[in-house]
Design a protein around this nucleic acid. Sequence first.
DNA 1: CTGTTAGCGCGTTCAC
DNA 2: GTGAACGCGCTAACAG
Lengths: 330, 330
Amino acid sequence: MDTSLTTIDEVAQALGLSVTTVRLVLNGQAARYRISPGTRQRIEDYVAGHQVMVNHAARSLRLQRSETIGLVVPNLGNPFFARLMAELERCCQARNLMLLTASSHEDPELEARAVRQLLDRSIDGLVLAPCRKPAPELFARHLARVAVVLVDRAYPGSGFPTVVSDNRAGARELARRLLAEAGGDALFLCAQAALPSIRDRIRGFREAWAEAGLGDRPAPVLDGGASDLPFTGARLVNAHLERGGALPRALVCSSLVVLEGALQALRDRLGRLPPDLLIGTFDTEAMLAFLPNRVLAVVQDEAAIAQRAFARLQPGARPTRDVIPCRLFG
Amino acid sequence: MDTSLTTIDEVAQALGLSVTTVRLVLNGQAARYRISPGTRQRIEDYVAGHQVMVNHAARSLRLQRSETIGLVVPNLGNPFFARLMAELERCCQARNLMLLTASSHEDPELEARAVRQLLDRSIDGLVLAPCRKPAPELFARHLARVAVVLVDRAYPGSGFPTVVSDNRAGARELARRLLAEAGGDALFLCAQAALPSIRDRIRGFREAWAEAGLGDRPAPVLDGGASDLPFTGARLVNAHLERGGALPRALVCSSLVVLEGALQALRDRLGRLPPDLLIGTFDTEAMLAFLPNRVLAVVQDEAAIAQRAFARLQPGARPTRDVIPCRLFG
DNA sequence: CTGTTAGCGCGTTCAC
DNA sequence: GTGAACGCGCTAACAG
């Protein structure tokens, strides 16, 4: 058996046929062009025995498309984005596409670089969770060929189809329940409040606060700034308590990471977690269910986001805006 | 400003130069070939104003390599593999490579399909966490060009460089500590015992068991079979208790998923988690730290695995075997 | 220092 | 039914 890579030309040569004939068979157009059954059989036998593979680079060059889509997210290690990617990859497999992935690490420079690298590679589509409002000039001359969809972070006026979770409704429902159970005594800690998704979570919390008739006081929302680290949550808790703030009956955090830091700080100060503290959070982890505390969690539907984003991946698509419902657990 | 894609030919044409000259400048070899500074400046000005980008498909076709490496893992949504991918992507960024990713969903058929798709796309390297012992014929005719490294699952005799965690030592140390604290009263629940990584964890547990002088009884290891689901952990716990087994002082689980199911079952049966139950597990989650129980966790060093795998990614490399230490937390 | 040219493997068009 | 020939954009060898 031949050990070199087998190209279509080589098959043709080996069988004494022309490349056209071989390709028509390989592309399933044998019937249409009335290739003789004998020839057809010979070709099929040969490729079966030799693991013939088409050269994708040549194909891309000729067809000006690559059967590849790109995904750029802030951090592939973040479980939300990891699940999103896994779901997107599932969509791709069904259509024989492959996924090229890159992390921006929340750095607009790296993001632009990743996007350029992907466009260089003639991706047919790009799913982007941008760390800033994307600069349209990055894509300008590609828009005819490559479809762009924004996910998770809906910067208004970006001009691209966008698919996001309904963070606002999720947060509102979460806060409604928590405020009812906690008699209105809740505190919302957040990081990265500049992100559209976080902004929506804050808005939802404020709406529930007003609905609960607490509008005479401003909603207690503490903003920890740009970095979503455990340290941010810890800092907010410590600052609140040191300012003489009371321990609330319900604590809501804008991310699991903030929650982690907040719980650490509470445990450090109080010796243990106050078991009657109600916890509200976004996204979830399996072990959250085993805390002694009552926990409410808003979880996003990564599969639905991925599928919708995939469906919107059409060149020249209008800038639609899809909002995927969240589910509330606990 | 031109809105079409700008190719090297077009730049040359627009500037009245030859493609060679343009290319030498673009590839940073201007100095070496003594391109005149004036010409050089003209070219650089032009490309700056036009966002010129090289066509990677053409480049790959010509060079027979794609500056792309492939990653195939059982499940991209699994946090361990997600972190591994994030780290591998970091290695790639440093060398201007991109990552093509695919999940096998623990299905050898899908795995083979993904690998073939990647090889079709002329990847320069492949990092594979195989769900079975890989069939060498999949790669046979590519080995000269594409480097293959196996990670996480070391099937002996595969013939490829392999990078895995030191699951055996990690498990041994974990069990040693847990057995000491629990007076030898421990139970090990596992799923997917056929995987090399899980097998090593079992072996480590057994070694610690023998070391602790408990060798007169067989080590209490319960095997839940092939599927790593919460249900598996729950089933093992229920079966153990219904057989009249006592609640052990220490419970070790081969994965977080098994632990999740086991804890669910315990809570369902006992009304709450027994707070003095010692827990041992592999991999970790932030919220695990806030369980009322004492928890010991063996965590893998995804960054080190990724870096080592990346370093071993050389065509025709000898089948080395790297074992990366784990860390024990708790 | 710069220009010309021949493929890389595939898909398409047109001729036989 | 089948074959020949061109070009996608780039690189490398060689020719000035």
